[in-house]
């Protein structure tokens, strides 16, 4: 029988578990407690607390934050990672100082979304969506319908919607970011 070579990396023990941040930080404590008070279980607070944490920690959830939130909400860190990788709005990698979402779904596509995406990538100087630009300024994300179809094509920059966007307007908006 031929035995495929087993990469040594996989035999080695895994990297040490990440060191959890102390969560919630002071600034978020009240809001986190407020969120928890709305639900009969701690787990139910996962989505809103993670959105809050993402905002607080520079636009993404690092393994250390993930571990901190997991222990605060008394769920496993794999559960939290399961959420982070399921929902489109979370980032598990550094997300740039500005996050640009370009809608790619049918209406926006009919109204020129592909050009917008290219404009966004060119302006940011990255090749693909989902990776932070080298200067740490932008993260471009391809999003599905943002619910702004009557004013398509639509773009979000840092959580704020922009509508009827043209490539020129998008360049302007992105250039205005610092």
């Amino acid at each position: 029988m031929s035995v495929p070579p087993e990469s040594t990396a996989s035999v080695l023990p895994q990297a040490a578990p990440p060191e959890a941040v102390a969560f919630p930080p002071k600034e978020l404590k009240k809001e986190c407690e407020d969120i928890l008070s709305r639900y009969p279980t701690r787990m139910a607070a996962c989505l809103p607390v993670l959105l809050l944490a993402q905002q607080h920690y520079g636009g993404w959830i690092s393994p250390e934050v993930e571990a901190g939130v997991a222990s605060y909400l008394e769920v496993s860190d794999s559960h939290i990672r399961g959420l982070l990788t399921f929902y489109a709005m979370y980032n598990t990698k550094p997300a740039g100082r500005h996050e640009v979402w370009v809608c790619r779904t049918l209406t926006c596509w009919l109204r020129g979304a592909e050009k917008l995406r290219q404009t966004a990538l060119d302006t940011a100087g990255v090749a693909t969506c989902g990776t932070e630009s080298d200067d740490g300024k932008f993260l471009i994300k391809n999003m599905e319908c943002l619910g702004l179809c009557e004013v398509a094509p639509a773009v979000f920059i840092d959580g704020q919607p922009h509508v009827n966007v043209t490539p020129e307007k998008l360049t302007e908006l992105m250039e205005a970011c610092d």
Binding site: Q14, S78, G82, T85
Partner: peptide, 19 residues
């Protein structure tokens, strides 16, 4: 210890980082 991660055809099983 285990959870599903990713979605759609990139769904996989992951394990806690406790190792």
């Amino acid at each position: 210890e285990l959870a599903m991660a990713g979605r759609s055809d990139h769904e996989i099983v992951i394990m806690t980082s406790q190792g």
